[in-house]
Computed example of a mutant assay.
Amino acid sequence: MSKRILSVGLAALIATTAIAGVAQARGEGDRERPSFEQLDTDGDGKITMEEMQARGTARFATADTNGDGLLSAEEMMATSEKAKERRVERMIKRLDANEDGQLSIEELQAARGGKGEGRKGRGFERIDADKDGAISKEEFEAASAKMGKRGHGKPKAE
Rank of each mutant, 00 (worst) to 15 (best):
A25W: 11
G67I: 11
D132W: 01
N98W: 03
G153T: 00
I5T: 14
R33F: 11
M76A: 13
K120P: 00
T62Q: 08
L70E: 09
L10N: 14
G67F: 12
K93Q: 08
I127E: 11
Q38W: 04
M91L: 12
K46Q: 13
E74I: 13
E81T: 01
M77D: 03
R55D: 06
A157M: 08
D30C: 10
R119H: 11
M1H: 15
R94T: 02
D64M: 10
A157P: 01
R59G: 14
R59Y: 12
G45F: 05
F140C: 06
R26G: 02
D68G: 07
T41Y: 00
G69Q: 04
E37C: 09
K115C: 05
A110P: 00
D42S: 02
V22G: 03
D44S: 06
G9Q: 01
A145E: 14
A83E: 07
K82W: 05
E85Y: 11
R122T: 01
R126A: 08
F36I: 01
K46A: 14
E74F: 10
I105G: 14
H152N: 15
T65Q: 05
I19G: 07
G116C: 04
M91T: 12
L108N: 05
L108Y: 03
E50V: 09
E107A: 00
I47V: 15
E125W: 06
E32N: 09
A61W: 01
E51C: 07
M77A: 09
R112D: 07
D128K: 01
D64C: 10
K131T: 08
E50F: 05
A61D: 11
G56V: 06
Q24C: 08
E141S: 10
K149I: 07
I127R: 10
D44P: 05
L108H: 05
L71K: 01
G21E: 07
K156R: 15
L95G: 02
K156S: 14
G121E: 03
A157R: 10
T41L: 00
F60G: 02
D130N: 11
A23C: 11
R122A: 02
D44I: 04
L13H: 02
G116A: 00
D132P: 02
E141W: 06
K137G: 15
E158F: 13
S7D: 13
G21Q: 05
I92N: 10
F140E: 05
L10E: 14
G153A: 04
K93P: 00
I135D: 03
A23Y: 06
K84N: 11
S144E: 08
M1Q: 15
D30H: 15
T65I: 06
L13V: 06
S104N: 07
D130Q: 01
D130Y: 03
I135W: 04
F124R: 04
I135T: 06
G133E: 02
A143I: 01
E89A: 14
K156P: 04
A73M: 13
E139H: 11
T62E: 12
E117G: 01
E81P: 00
P155C: 14
P34F: 00
S72T: 08
G27Y: 05
N98V: 06
A73Y: 10
E28A: 07
I19V: 12
R87P: 07
G148T: 03
L70Y: 13
R122E: 06
R94D: 09
